[in-house]
Design a protein around this nucleic acid. Structure first.
Lengths: 201, 201
DNA sequence: TAGATTGTTAATCGATTAACAATC
DNA sequence: TAGATTGTTAATCGATTAACAATC
């Protein structure tokens, strides 16, 4: 659920393409192949690729390295993105240690928490300002989320990835992506329940 | 990205309504109010509620407790859902300890890992079968994900929440919800990049 | 009653899919 | 050439929004 932003479905498939493309050893890949590997429609894949890259070659497909380069260009992953994370509970630690961000050139430059060996949150705003950090990850308990958010926004952060189960109040120039893991799982379970009923169990 | 399933957008808003509704102290709430609190359109909220609940009262709104009950009914959250989790790294631990599942009547009944004080994965299949567990959460390293998935599927698991960055191969009666945190953040950053460009920074 | 809120019908919008022509 | 794959146009589908009538 992304606040303050228009939802464009195809953008969410680009990281998917990117991840899959890096696994190919061949020089060329057809849209049919890529589609099958991702359980998507081949026309959809072709349309998506047409939006961000040059034409493929009939009978051959697309040059893998060109696609990777063009998707990275389009998404803006050539420039490194710096992010800070606040709240080093289990989720915070998991994200901080997660190696998967690297492939999108995302770097979590500093971790803040009142406990442990992390940076003290008192220095959060100053740090973001001094280091031109525009992305913040909020993994604090929900009662502290708005306060942390305010600090981030006040010191130049423009995009917030929020794991706290609260709706953050932000000015319209700030993007908030709410990540609610319980909601995600509950939706999966709903679909699962529907099938059980359907198949008469 | 949910495999083997039709995507119905409004279902993803129901947990959102549910979470918000439980925070109201008043007996009644208007769709306008609920919409505003969630940054949604009021007509959209009314349409969604009409699909799962009885009519509201003009000038008054909807009875909060009825809405909560009806959404829970519709989603199937009255019956407890049992789940197992496999792979107790940081993400696994975070999910295992996360209190937010309780409100959807989701219970992670057992945690498996080769290390630590968790259940040995050798017993995973047997456990699922004996305890009628139909939901599995995969948080193992990506090289082990398919093997774990196979065990789950072979022993009756019908819905899999997959945090490993691989596409799992499953029969068509099994639902797979792929959760790729790096992809989520990368999409947020793309939108953020678009705005920077737009505003000329 | 007047007014706030509801539910519904029609219009719009966007995304996906189907059909097909173009190309190497 | 024949055939695989491409790109595009038109049709379909579904979701959202706008307009408005109904209700307490």
């Amino acid at each position: 659920m992304l606040q303050n932003c228009i939802h464009e479905a195809f953008i969410e498939r680009l990281p998917l393409y990117l991840s899959k493309l890096t696994t190919y050893k061949e020089n060329y890949v057809s849209s049919t192949r890529l589609a099958a590997d991702l359980s998507l429609g081949d026309v959809q894949v072709r349309k998506d690729l047409a939006k961000v890259s040059k034409a493929g070659k009939p009978k051959v497909g697309f040059l893998v390295e060109d696609l990777i380069r063009d998707i990275n260009d389009y998404m803006g992953f050539n420039d490194q993105t710096k992010a800070v994370i606040v709240g080093m509970g289990k989720i915070g630690q998991a994200l901080y240690l997660y190696p998967g961000f690297k492939s999108f050139n995302i770097h979590i430059v500093k971790a803040f928490d009142i406990n442990g060996s992390y940076e003290n949150p008192n220095g959060l705003g100053q740090y973001c300002q001094n280091h031109d950090v525009h992305v913040g990850i909020i993994t604090v308990p929900k009662d502290h989320a708005q306060a942390i958010c305010d600090v981030l926004v006040h010191h130049g952060v423009k995009a917030i990835w929020n794991f706290a189960p609260v709706r953050l109040d932000v000015p319209s120039h700030v993007l908030v992506q709410n990540e609610n893991l319980a909601h995600s799982l509950s939706v999966l379970i709903k679909h699962h329940n529907d099938r059980r009923y359907h198949h008469g169990l």
